[in-house]
Amino acid sequence: MSGVPLVFYLGVSAAMFLLGLLGVMTRRNPLLLLLAVELMLNGANIALVGFSRHWDTTDGQIFALVVMVVAAAEVVIGLGLVVAVFRQRLQLNVDDLARLRG
């Protein structure tokens, strides 16, 4: 096999995964948490594609495509929940604003 050796794929993939994990553990904003989780999933995707090239099969790439769909669905649900929470909080804030009205 020519081109970039497998080790480099794995290095990038592990770095992305660990950065994502670090993000999940340190961040407190739900949007950033979702981003960090995406980073973890994509780290795994790079490993899958790298291994797929190493073994000269397309299986890993198919898996990576499935993971992308799953990740997209996860973000949709996550954003939906964040919006729902925000709406609840917003209602409270609107009440506060009403009290300030001259």
Binding site: S13, M40, A44, H54, D59, E74
Partner: peptide, 16 residues
Amino acid sequence: AVGSAVLLYGLALLFG
């Protein structure tokens, strides 16, 4: 999602 990502990385390594 964190649990899923960890599991997925494990599955990827098993495939590798």
